[in-house]
């Protein structure tokens, strides 16, 4: 299962996150392997963001474990947030900054940066201040910045939640490209259409509890859990 040098599989073991005794994520046990695009689906407040943040190491679980297969897994993963966080500098400098933290030299960083800017269609706006870009461009830049790090695993937390359909499409295409280049995609969404377009497998969360984990082809035709079924039907009614 474990490839040499790979930080996968990622194991979440009995993960719980509680605030004031209230369990917001409850006894979650999951394994993420190299390969399929994993979509975490669930209604607002289901615990998707908390789960991703714990898996990525941004949030300490109240109990349970996050297990990777290498000693320094942090270097090999990246995360894209719902609202892009842009440093107050140019688009290019945003990527350079991330590469600098990884210890890359200036020349090497510039080469890598130009490559991801080109691949994400951002070469033309490289010198603009990142914070004057449209939200769609900012999110593409956030993905470019994450991608430049050559992560083995890319977490994305509802990356298109505040975007229009066209910008959403651009992000989804990028995610497919990054997946095809060999990066494991673990992404949350509450958008059924998006899950249908992108997912290889679905992890369905509801009120902090895992309802089911199902191949995408099965989930949308015959979900195993009552919650999954209700969610699908609710969506169809809309």
């Amino acid at each position: 299962m474990t490839l040499p040098g790979s930080i996968l599989p990622l194991k979440l073991i009995d993960l719980t996150y509680a605030v004031d005794g209230q369990k917001l994520v409850q006894n979650l046990t999951l394994e993420f392997t190299q390969g399929p695009k994993t979509l975490i689906l669930g209604p607002n407040g289901a615990g998707k963001s908390l789960t991703l943040r714990m898996a990525h190491g941004l949030l300490k679980p109240t109990s349970g474990q996050v297990q990777w297969q290498q000693r320094h897994p942090q270097r090999h993963q990246a995360m894209v947030f719902q609202r892009p966080v842009m440093l107050r500098r140019s688009a290019a400098a945003n990527i350079d900054y991330a590469l600098g933290l990884k210890g890359l030299g200036k020349a090497e960083a510039a080469e890598l940066r130009n490559e991801v800017l080109a691949k994400t269609g951002l070469s033309g706006i490289a010198t603009r201040p990142a914070r004057v870009l449209s939200i769609g461009e900012q999110q593409r830049l956030a993905i470019a910045r994450a991608w430049a790090l050559r992560p083995q695993v890319l977490f994305l937390d509802e990356p298109t939640a505040s975007l229009d359909p066209k910008a959403t499409r651009a992000i989804e295409d990028l995610i497919e490209t990054i997946h095809a280049a060999g990066t494991k995609i673990i992404m949350s969404t509450h958008d059924m259409g998006q899950a249908k377009r992108l997912a290889d497998e679905i992890i369905f969360l509801n009120q902090g509890v895992l309802s089911e984990r199902t191949a995408a082809s099965d989930f949308f035709t015959s979900p195993h859990s009552a919650e999954g079924r209700a969610f699908l039907e609710g969506e169809l009614l809309l």
């Binding site: 270097r75 990246a78 966080v85 990884k102």
Partner: peptide, 24 residues
């Protein structure tokens, strides 16, 4: 508050974040 998650994700330690904060 705005940067913490993103910088931590990029592997930036709190002390290393000081010059970043001062510049930004």
């Amino acid at each position: 508050g705005e940067y913490r998650d993103q910088l931590t994700s990029l592997g930036c330690e709190p002390l290393r974040a000081v010059p970043t904060i001062l510049w930004d």
